[in-house]
Amino acid sequence: MKPTRYLFLTFAILSGCAVIKPNPTQRIGFEAPEAYPEGIAYDSVNSAYYVSSARLGNIGKVSVNGVYSTLHMDTTLKSSYGMKIHPDGKRLFVCISDANYSKYTSPATRKKMARLISIDLATGRRLSDTDLSGLLPGKHFANDLTFDAQGNAYITDSFAHAIYKVTADGKASVFAKDKSFETEGVGLNGIVYHPAGFLVVDNSNTGQLYKIDIANPLSVRKIKTDQFFLGADGLLLQDANTLVMVVNGGTDKIYKLETEDNWTSARLAATTLIADRFTYPATATRKMNEIWVMNARFSELPDSNSVPSKNFDIQKAVFKPIPKPKK
């Protein structure tokens, strides 16, 4: 083994040993009993985080000091998931479904309902409510969304294995559907729009990422990586060549992927550590040059002995770079 490799490995082991004690990075704790927030979006104008709720279906607002208030509540929403602030900065778009943990689940909506709603940030009123469940047969889970430069929204459906498009004037259609998206369980999940004119989407249960041309959505290509990312959840495009990916499902880390070929392939460039103790991290948002992550605590929900949590944390992702392997 080359000397540089030995040095690197020694460093890796030693630094691993040094931070073996649980050592979570900076957290903003807030009290929102039973919320189990999955989605997050930072509002730089109002200096606040918006968080969704997989158990209650509401949307909350968290100040940077951790004070929680309800922005929008409606138990018929069942569960709220991924969310993004519209480029106009005035509206919050939220994925609504009844996929798993809603307290208000019902046979009529369970794995059937899929909606995209928008909320006025100033008043908390619902401005639009687009039904996505009729576009394809079978089960539905509207999971996450992104906007392109024209204000079109693209939404992942984890159970129908498709991406929907909702135009700025509210028209919904199936944008992309590919055999490679199909899997049992939760499939397509996080999604981002790349300014070069394509979408990047991940898939929790295939552990892979895909690139879809906006101009030609039949062109779906798997992004080549050296490893799988089972449990891949929220995505955030940090810059043209850097993607932040939140991974839960037993891994509970935040990764940075980098590309040198416009997302034909990508490598793992940086990671958070086991010691950071992310607690089922689900989605990420940007605050200036920092990445903040919503710890959804979903691991507690299938565990029948737990009483519902009252407190949740937004946690800062501090990345440790991974040196490039020598060819």
Partner: peptide, 24 residues
């Protein structure tokens, strides 16, 4: 880290590689 596979030992005549990772 993938490089850690270099720390693994197998008997003479055998080799060990990573066949897949990131599987939870």
């Amino acid at each position: 880290l993938p490089e850690m596979v270099n720390l693994l030992k197998v008997p003479e005549g055998w080799e060990v590689k990573i066949a897949a990772s990131g599987l939870g």
